[in-house]
Amino acid sequence: MFIEFLWVLLLGSLLGLELIGKVPPTLHTPLMSGANAISGITVLAALTLIIKAGDNPVLLLLGTVSLGFALFNVIGGFLVTDRMLAMFSRKPARKENR
């Protein structure tokens, strides 16, 4: 099991290294913000903790607070990235309206 996980870790890292090469400076902020939203994937860990908590109140609480933090990261991150990117993409549309 552990070895499998290590493979997953290795391949995931290699994939991440290859994914972005040349990024125009315009996109540095949105890309960082988008990647940041993805790092909120710890929602999965938080959910797992809650589900496995049984009726242990401390675990339930820790899991729920963790879930809240992670979702704050995810939802806020994606929305704010979208807000930034919307400003780039709406330009041509407006021009056509004129």
Binding site: L11, G16, S39
Partner: peptide, 12 residues
């Protein structure tokens, strides 16, 4: 979680 975390870590 491991894949996604590793991807963001490396891309970051």
């Amino acid at each position: 979680l491991i894949v996604a975390g590793a991807m963001v870590g490396a891309a970051g």
